[in-house]
Computed example of a mutant assay.
Amino acid sequence: MSNRQLYIGLMSGTSADGIDAALVDMQTNLPQLITTHNLPFSNGLRTRIHSISIPGDNEIDRMGELDTELGRHFAQCTLELLAKAQLTTNQITAIGSHGQTIRHRPPGTTSNCFTLQIGDPNVIAELTGITTVADFRRRDMAAGGQGAPLVPAFHRALFHSSARDKVIVNIGGMANITWLPASGEACGFDTGPGNVLMDSWINEHHGVSFDKQGGWAASGAAHQELLESLLSDAFFKQPFPKSTGREHFNRQWLDRHLQQLPFPPANQDVQATLLELTARSITESIDLLCQTEKEILVCGGGAFNTRLLERLAKLLPNCLVSSTASQGIDPQWIEAMAFAWLAQQTINHKPGNLCAVTGAKREVILGGVYYAS
């Protein structure tokens, strides 16, 4: 592997269910996924991450401890990935670590906007012996951007075609889209909740972390009054660029809408409604960008929700809807690959944001570099 340029991408999303690690070869024109690894979080750690994501007591101490603890987890995940790939640390150019978002206040939500990801890159670099790039989002925000989504720049590098219009739909805890016209400028934005509300609802009522293939949602029917109430949220009408997170779309937000109903829906109908909310907010955003025929490629955990993909296809009858697996890339690993790519951009002094996506005044080199000893 001496002729390869190997980078590792580390990603933990708003669901906080664990770390995805991707070993990527950047030597070729298109990044090549070599090896992957997932390190799940314990229920206790996930609960503490979700707890620190909303205002509460003693936040600084709690955040500081989690910052160090998560740094160790990211390092552990990296070393386990290398063992699986039978590689040594000196064969890796750099790690790109997204970190764990615990607060995201983009422009328009507060007078002094900020975004905060933890998982101390000093700890990662020290424990792995690999140069680590982290804190990608704040430089874009300093340049006037939303700080998110950042993955669309990678989507453009990986999936753009001069022969066909495409939309890449990333469905993690939140969902975002990337519009890749055959000719013209790429753009994208967060569309709203992806899996976050569905995961929370089924966890409360069935004690599992996600609705496998959307089976529970498929057993119910969308409650129209609840759906209309959810879709009335101002975020869905907000012009892009825009981004969001668990700070906005969370269980308390859902409860407020449920409490406005004269009678509570059946639990499976709430699940079906939350799935429809994700499908509708995505497809209406796509139609806003372009209503002509195009290819829709879905990645993220939502790509494994069969019922959700069926609804997307039904709501976009003139489009071919499939997961990125149809392009030979497992949808679970796109985001981790993206942060390996963003690390390479930073190491090579190249910008990593798209102004049309984040709203930044200019393209900038993202992140801070924490050098190996």
Rank of each mutant, 00 (worst) to 15 (best):
A325D: 06
L70V: 10
T283N: 05
F304I: 01
I95L: 12
Q260K: 07
H104A: 11
D67I: 02
H223S: 03
H257E: 01
P149E: 04
Q332C: 01
N305E: 06
L180F: 05
E363V: 01
A134Q: 02
W341F: 13
L127P: 04
S209Y: 07
A234F: 02
H104Q: 13
P107T: 11
I95E: 06
T358E: 14
E225L: 15
A21I: 01
F136G: 00
G147C: 12
H257Q: 09
N348R: 13
D17L: 03
M174G: 08
T292S: 15
V123A: 01
N38Q: 14
T191W: 09
S232V: 12
F159D: 07
G301V: 03
T28E: 12
S243F: 09
E80P: 01
G145Q: 13
V133N: 00
S183G: 04
R251Y: 00
A272V: 05
L70D: 07
I286R: 00
G192F: 03
K166W: 01
A83R: 12
A372I: 12
N176Q: 09
L226W: 04
S373C: 11
I168G: 01
D135S: 02
R311S: 11
N203A: 08
I334H: 11
N305P: 06
P239M: 12
R280S: 12
L309M: 15
F240S: 07
E276Q: 13
G99N: 10
L261F: 06
V123P: 04
G96A: 10
A221C: 14
V298S: 07
A125Q: 00
S42A: 08
K314T: 12
V24T: 06
Q76E: 15
A134V: 01
N43R: 14
E310Y: 02
A336D: 03
N250K: 05
G71Q: 10
Q100R: 11
A356N: 11
G301M: 07
M1R: 09
V24C: 08
L116E: 00
C77G: 15
T115D: 13
V270L: 00
I102G: 11
A83S: 14
R137E: 13
T36W: 03
H160W: 15
P241N: 09
